[in-house]
């Protein structure tokens, strides 16, 4: 874990209200793994006060990339960062996706901005058969940047399958069953809950990247609990996650 003042290379709007920020940060770029995150202090001032957590979207040489939408004051300021500006990055944080293991088929399941960590994962899944399922409410919510072999689902039917992404996945079950599969997922909680049920029913390994409001990102504020099978204690999203085996947590 390091704290690094990273120069911004560029910020681009790659999709309606979806931004991609590139920052030069060799020390983090060389260490970070897909699914891990960075906690970013956007300005030097006390408002916005806290760092903002962002999963790493991609790594290329000395550069790291973050994908985000404008949600509040912090992300609005971040979207205006230009070459010559800096961001203060605390990273790498948390446990990322486990790529290693005995499986042939990697399936990525993303909902909305849950697509953010997958361009980097896709790169690192070298040699595996990859299928990507991306869902959103409408075509506007479907972000396909940096991913491959994509099927899409939208609730209003404006793009791809009409329905949710887990239903789309169910329709592909016979094909999925042909290989030893591992699912990597990130998205809204209702999607992750439905996906968890589907994976347990069909005995498919599934890792999910979870989300919770947090302050520090490394375990001292205790702000981001997640319920587990063990009733008398929580795990922390920042330190024990954010990626969990879906069987280990209650989403």
């Amino acid at each position: 874990m390091v704290i690094s003042k990273a120069p911004v290379v560029s910020t681009r709007e790659i999709h309606e209200n979806i931004f991609l920020l590139e920052a030069r940060c060799p020390v983090v770029a060389s260490q970070i793994k897909p699914g891990q995150f960075c906690n970013i202090k956007i300005t030097e001032f006390s408002s916005p006060l806290l760092r903002r957590p962002f999963s790493v979207c991609d790594v290329n040489g000395n550069s790291i990339y973050f994908m985000f939408n404008i949600f509040g004051e912090g992300t609005k300021l971040l979207s205006r960062k230009r070459e010559g500006d800096t961001v203060n990055i605390l990273a790498p944080l948390g446990n990322g996706f486990t790529i290693e293991g005995d499986y042939e088929h990697a399936i990525i399941v993303a909902g909305g901005l849950g697509a953010a960590p997958f361009p980097f994962l896709t790169k690192k899944l070298d040699g595996k058969k990859i299928s990507t399922f991306i869902g959103g409410r409408t075509a506007n919510d479907v972000i396909t940047y940096g991913m491959e072999n994509i099927q899409t689902a939208t609730e209003d039917g404006s793009l791809g399958f009409k329905g949710n992404v887990v239903q789309l996945l169910k329709n592909n079950l016979p094909e999925i069953k042909k290989h030893k599969t591992r699912i990597f997922s990130c998205g809204p909680n209702p999607m992750l809950r439905a996906l968890k049920e589907f994976c347990i029913e069909n005995e498919i390994e599934c890792q999910a990247s979870t989300e919770c409001a947090m302050a520090c990102g490394f375990g001292i504020c205790q702000g981001c609990p997640i319920e587990t099978a063990e009733k008398d204690k929580y795990l922390l999203v920042c330190k024990d996650g954010p990626v969990f085996d879906v069987r280990d947590v209650i989403i």
Binding site: L50, A213, A215, G223, C224, I226
Partner: peptide, 22 residues
């Protein structure tokens, strides 16, 4: 065990926490 989430929210130049003595 402490309180269920959400435990933290940012406010102007500050933050609210309700960790619940976890």
């Amino acid at each position: 065990k402490g309180n269920p989430p959400q435990r933290i929210v940012e406010t102007p130049s500050g933050m609210l926490n309700a960790i619940g003595l976890a």
